[in-house]
């Protein structure tokens, strides 16, 4: 059986919001080290890989490996019923056909309980292979989200060009073109505001802004984002 409690439901709310546009149904693979999810989007062009470590929960208990088939649209709707600061407990019994969620307000005067029916999801064993990337860019996640949103007004694709001292995001469409150049900054007060470019060799690659905008939804989860690029390898965000 699985029993896991998060101090703030907002963590799972943000995760589900970031994933739900890409993944319809997928397994939460639960074991004693945590809860993992690997799933390609329905168009089979992007992989979502998520790991919620057991240490992030208190308590966390998982007696044996179980795969919980989740419909993310349903889970997203249920998570909307949770207050951001609510305690969240998720439970699944042996051979469970439901995932139980309990939201408890901070002063314990409101307790909501929901059961979501589990599904059988055919699972491929997928992951992101270890690769030495030509360029690794670290930047504030809000800045990345804004760049993707701004350049969407011009084109459905963006070309990311990483050189020694700058990263250029370029969008070119029927009605015009636009570009945003981001330069590394070292001496910033907040680590999240840092921009770094680590380069083995310059790269210039094009990607679908639709997907980058989906990925950027995860920017509420962390202050900074890392983009790893190489020729002939998927962009890792």
């Amino acid at each position: 059986m699985l029993e896991a409690r998060l101090p703030s439901a907002v963590t799972l709310k943000k995760i589900i919001d970031a994933v739900k546009e890409l993944v319809q149904d997928a397994n939460f693979d639960c074991n004693d080290s945590g809860i993992a999810l690997q799933a390609m989007d329905s168009s089979h062009v992007a992989l979502v890989a998520l790991l919620m470590r057991a240490e992030g929960f208190d308590p966390y208990r998982c007696d044996r490996n179980i795969a919980l088939g989740i419909n993310f649209a349903t889970l997203a709707k249920v998570m909307k019923c949770a207050g951001n600061d609510d305690n969240l407990t998720i439970k699944a019994g042996e051979d469970a056909d439901v995932l139980s969620l309990m939201f408890e307000s901070t002063n314990s005067d409101r307790i909501s309980e929901f059961d979501i029916k589990l599904m059988d999801v055919d699972a491929d064993h997928l992951g992101i292979p270890e690769t030495d990337y030509s360029a690794t860019i670290k930047m504030p996640s809000a800045e990345f989200q804004r760049i993707c949103r701004d350049l969407s007004v011009m084109s459905e694709t963006v070309t990311i060009e990483a050189v020694k001292d700058a990263v250029k995001f370029i969008a070119s469409g029927d009605t015009g073109s636009g570009s945003i150049t981001v330069k590394p900054n070292q001496a910033v007060d907040k680590k999240d505001m840092e921009v770094t470019v680590t380069l083995q060799e310059p790269v210039k690659l094009a990607f679908s802004l639709k997907y980058l905008n989906h990925f950027a939804k995860a920017s509420t989860l962390a202050g900074s984002v890392t983009l790893s690029l190489s020729d002939d390898v998927p962009l890792m965000i």
Binding site: Q38, M40, H44, V45, D124, H125, L126, G127, P129, V233
Partner: peptide, 14 residues
């Protein structure tokens, strides 16, 4: 479609 198959195989190698 070729790219989709290639991507799936790429992710399966992890």
């Amino acid at each position: 479609v070729c790219r989709q198959v290639w991507l799936t195989r790429y992710f399966e190698t992890a």
